[in-house]
Amino acid sequence: MSYLMVFSLLCLSMSYFATGQFSHFRAVHGVKLTGTRRQRQLLSAWGILFGGLLAACLVKGFAHGSLIWIGLLTPAALFVLLILQQRSTWLQRIRVVALLLCLFSLIALLYAG
């Protein structure tokens, strides 16, 4: 569950990093990315990225947590890349699913103690 939670957070973060780029933003949202909006996208991406690290370390301890976080960065980025390549318009839906999975795994972790 902890892997799922960190992976969903990293997917969310990577998706914001992707839409922080002009070409991907246009492909996903169909409109031009403005400067303010870009800053907001990148700020969200960095925030969630560090949130993921914090969550991983809290659940698995610093050594294993940081290792899991670094390790999951790769599949999360690959997943977002794949979505952008195949169905870039799905990225918004993927964000919702990632958020739901994150909440689900958090509840499961809290329930398991």
């Binding site: 294993h64 290792l67 390790g71 999951l72 790769t74 599949p75």
Partner: peptide, 13 residues
């Protein structure tokens, strides 16, 4: 195992 698979993914890449 989950972490091992992440290592494998790194190796494949």
């Amino acid at each position: 195992w989950p972490l091992r698979w992440l290592f494998v993914l790194g190796g494949v890449l």
